[in-house]
Write a protein that binds this DNA or RNA. Structure first.
Lengths: 148, 148
DNA sequence: GTTGCACCTGCAATTTTTTGCAATAAATAC
DNA sequence: GTATTTATTGCAAAAAATTGCAGGTGCAAC
């Protein structure tokens, strides 16, 4: 409830309007689990309002992203995921071999954030990035030589 | 010279062929400065061979990416940049307000890499990500209230 | 409630990226 | 050198993402 009031507040405060479409889209992102794609959002909203156009989804996602109400994460395979911000911030790590995605608490970034802040004055956002790498299992396979 | 031999070697070893188009594309990425987009690569190659098709660029970039000969970086404004790997590895940080991009030596990631390795067995690649945040200047503006 | 303005939406058109396929050409073996 | 195999290319078509615009609509002021 309170978060919804906050959301509406945020949108109103930035010269934007709360339309039924936008409300459905917000709700879809909020309730469709952690990470959703544009198409998943579209499908979800269509269930309540079948006439919604994809371009509306794209445009709204872009606006919500700028307002920092949702986060955008580029997976290392190119897929883009959206996620409601407000819960726990976390890092995404994606294995470049098996595409498994691990979520890691953002406390791991604390030290990096401090260093960068101190040396460059740059203030890192915790969200947005999926770090690419190799998970334990795939690393082992690579070493043994069973890799592609 | 040696890196070119290495490159050809890498490509041959993975059941792929060294075509003139691929050679031009490699050279374009290598010599067009640090970061280039698909279109910049295409334009560059067209100067030497005007008949090259964009799809060839897309497909080759994708292959070279998988072979880890080039890195792919998603800027926080959506633009995708490609870069020759082989020089110094570095992090990209991009200000979400002014879009300025700062390059930071990857030594800053050492500690994070170790922690993640220890706790999750996940092996982070240094490349690939542009970290989003606010540069010093934009942060100050935000605090003073001159922000959008 | 009514009005006015700026934002939003859906549609259509455009641009960007991906895919299917026949022809081409690189690499290997002879 | 020639033949064989198979990845690669260019083109065209498809799919995905973006943009322009005219009409619709939220919402604030009255």
């Amino acid at each position: 409830m309170s978060c919804e009031t906050d959301t509406i507040e945020t949108i109103r405060n930035s010269d934007q309007r709360m339309t039924p479409q936008r409300l459905l889209l917000l709700s879809a992102i909020r309730h469709s689990g952690e990470h959703v794609t544009i198409n998943q959002i579209h499908d979800q909203v269509k269930q309540a309002y079948p006439f919604i156009n994809v371009s509306t989804i794209y445009r709204n996602v872009s606006i919500l992203k700028e307002l920092r109400l949702i986060s955008e994460t580029y997976k290392t395979d190119g897929e883009i995921l959206y996620e409601w911000i407000g819960g726990h911030a976390h890092l995404h790590m994606m294995c470049r071999n098996c595409n498994e995605m691990i979520e890691i608490d953002d406390k791991y970034l604390d030290s990096l954030k401090q260093d960068i802040k101190k040396d460059f004055g740059f203030n890192i956002d915790i969200d947005h990035l999926a770090i690419s790498g190799l998970c334990d299992q795939c690393k082992k396979l690579e070493q043994v030589g069973y890799d592609d």
